[in-house]
């Protein structure tokens, strides 16, 4: 054996930037994340050519899953045109040759910061959420070792207490985005800083969601058809942002999550946060043929996806007999 035998032929860069061993580690940890939904799995988290805190966790997952046929969509705050989304999209395309898209319906892999698209995701799509802080307990316990023990013990009393104190003080739960949610009835998870509007989209969904925090080196997942229940008290229901009645000043779209744009007259206008939904609405309004997917919200109200199997493409011979249990999908 020679030294050359130990090394692969020299290449300026591995396919998808990460080398084979980095990818294998991520693959192994993603399996564990899927098998224990909502539980944070530590991983090495390689340094990538982007600053920590700028989506390096999501990026590593995307780089591991990507292949030259993967159609990739990248969004930041709901927008494909945000500068950091553009930067990540460009990087993914540059190191993988994968085609990019802005259309949620066309995408195989969606990497997102702080939003879940408004169109319902399918079973053949994977959503990768960038996570700045993976630890939902951090506001009540900044020490990670103690927080880990609390998860092990399912000791979420302080979490509940915090929500209760907010209700006493302010008359409601003051948590904005990152609403802590119980996954599969066992682990409390942060859904990443998506608005409350988006959390129901993870509950009993058809798609797989992978959440990855590069700086904090934790990965967790919500498989399809998994319960994701925001922490609420029986008599104080979960409330999404009051956006159902707002209208987008640019597209006329209604019933979706909006950005508020302050106006010089002291008031504010609203604009669709999911930029591609806005574009589609405008093109549809202008008479163009445009494919608009079914949305999670209808008339500003969340509608559970219709029950029934959606095995996605490429399933093999099976004696499997999907046998939906009624009521299993209601949030």
């Amino acid at each position: 054996m020679t030294l050359a035998d130990l090394a692969r032929p020299w290449a300026a860069m591995s396919y998808g930037f990460l080398d084979a061993s980095a990818k294998r580690e991520l693959r192994r940890k993603m399996i564990k994340a899927v098998c224990v939904p909502g539980c944070q799995m530590p991983y090495a988290s390689r340094e990538v050519p982007m600053a920590r805190g700028w989506g390096t966790g999501g990026l590593q997952v995307s780089l591991t899953l990507i292949n030259p046929r993967t159609r990739v969509k990248v969004i930041d705050q709901g927008a494909d045109d945000s500068v950091n989304a553009a930067s990540i999209r460009r990087f993914l395309a540059r190191v993988s040759g994968a085609p990019v898209t802005l259309d949620t319906l066309e995408a195989d892999l969606i990497q997102s910061r702080h939003r879940v698209p408004e169109e319902i995701l399918r079973s053949d799509q994977v959503l990768v959420l960038q996570v700045p802080n993976p630890e939902p307990l951090r506001p009540v316990q900044p020490n990670m070792s103690i927080a880990r023990q609390m998860h092990a013990d399912a000791d979420y009393g302080r979490m509940w207490l915090q929500l209760y104190e907010q209700i006493v003080r302010s008359g409601r739960v003051m948590q904005g985005a990152s609403y802590p949610s119980m996954v599969n009835g066992r682990h409390v998870m942060t859904p990443s800083p998506i608005p409350r509007w988006d959390v129901p989209k993870l509950h009993m969904a058809r798609h797989l969601t992978i959440l990855s925090a590069g700086r904090e080196k934790r990965i967790f997942a919500v498989p399809p058809f998994t319960r994701v229940e925001p922490l609420v008290f029986d008599d104080v229901p979960y409330r999404v942002e009051d956006h159902g009645g707002l209208t987008c000043a640019r597209s006329g779209a209604r019933g979706v999550f909006m950005n508020e744009i302050p106006q010089s007259d002291g008031g504010s206008a609203h604009e669709v946060s999911d930029s591609e939904w806005g574009v589609k609405t405008i093109r549809h309004r202008d008479g163009e043929a445009v494919r608009m997917g079914e949305t999670w919200y209808r008339d500003g109200r969340f509608v559970a996806p219709r029950p029934g199997p959606d095995p996605g493409p490429r399933s093999v011979r099976t004696d499997a007999d999907p046998d939906p249990v009624p009521g299993g999908g209601a949030p």
Binding site: E47, A51, R52, G53, W54, T56, D76, Q77, G78, S82, N84, R113, H114, R115, P132, S170, G171, R172, V173, M174, Q175, G176, A177, S178, P193, I194, P195, R196, W197, R215, R239, E241, D242, H243, F257, M258, N259, E260, S273
Partner: peptide, 28 residues
């Protein structure tokens, strides 16, 4: 690398989370 990255990440837009909190504040 982690500390500086996280520090400068606050330059990124956070208007969705901001909006979400504003909603709760106004309602309260």
């Amino acid at each position: 690398v982690e500390a500086s990255g996280f520090c400068i990440h606050f330059k990124l837009p956070h208007y969705v989370t901001f909006q979400s909190s504003l909603d709760a504040m106004r309602d309260a």
